[in-house]
Design a protein around this nucleic acid. Structure first.
Lengths: 154, 154
DNA sequence: ACCTTAAATAAGGAACCCTGATATTGTCAA
DNA sequence: TTGACAATATCAGGGTTCCTTATTTAAGGT
């Protein structure tokens, strides 16, 4: 007889692995994004950091490092580079001098808007043929995975 | 009145962008994979290349570079490193001496099997709570995106 | 034969990521 | 209150992945 566990096992051996499918789609998209962002001398990662800073004014480098699954040192390096380039500025947080909170500079905002156009085009090229229903389904499934990741972490 | 184009536009401005959701889930998964593969002194990328070589015996470095959206030089560098380490071997293709076809060595096969266990665990941790239906839906949606990428390329 | 294309390779550099170590600041419990 | 601990930022050094540019070799088409 076939048990629940059997089905679970079959599922987790699905070929290609789900992690592989996810990576393939992501690599294709990030590659396209990186290629087109070169025009503005910015990488996909740097653009993404800018968008996160925009929606989370005053976020710290340490908090960014957690969101991007890298060490604080790594994120600090990247953020410092963007600060030197004038895309971000940082200042001490009230009530906690060891934390440096980040904001977009006007240069950063202007560049970000240009990059948004590219990202939108990539999105359209990649998902434009999907039905509204499938599109929502995909987004919801991905959102659920992100929630699960966050819940599993601490 | 609201037109089809309006809806399309709204959709492509969905926040956070779908490309961002995809990247977040992928980064979390690749990070977990990389961490646990360190035990075997291998990166997630190298592991993935091994799996692709296993299911595509005799694939060339140039073909791999297309699958992974990197330049032939970049992939050659990585493959050469894995060859030096004894995970892969390469030899001239019959009828076309300029192409080097890749195979797993026995060392590579043994290591790959160990890594498979890790990848399976990560898959289970990441997707184990999904219903069979949602799981299949996600995989199918991702597969469709991969097909679209391949169709758009040449 | 000649031109083009495809594949591999080498060299140099940029971006991203890590570990280890240090300094500073805030928190909390003895 | 003080002393240990945790969190943040930063510096130093090194590894991997990625790029561009350029060369060599081989296959295919004109």
């Amino acid at each position: 007889m076939s048990t629940d566990l059997d089905r679970k096992n079959e599922r987790n051996d699905a070929v290609p692995r789900t992690i592989y499918l996810l990576n393939q789609v992501n690599q294709g998209l990030r590659n396209a994004l990186d290629l087109r962002l070169r025009e503005f001398k910015i990488t996909g990662l740097q653009y993404t950091i800018l968008t996160v800073v925009r929606s989370n004014e005053g976020i710290s480098s340490a908090e960014l490092s957690r969101r991007f699954f890298v060490t604080p040192q790594t994120m600090n390096e990247t953020v410092t580079g963007m600060e030197r380039r004038g895309l971000l500025k940082r200042k001490e947080q009230r009530n906690n001098k060891r934390i440096l909170v980040a904001f977009l500079t006007s240069t950063g905002e202007i560049l970000l808007k240009k990059c948004d156009v590219i990202a939108r085009e990539i999105d359209t090229e990649a998902f434009g043929d999907m039905s509204d229903e499938d599109f929502d389904t995909l987004r919801n499934l991905l959102q659920d995975r992100i929630k699960r990741q966050r819940a599993a972490k601490p």
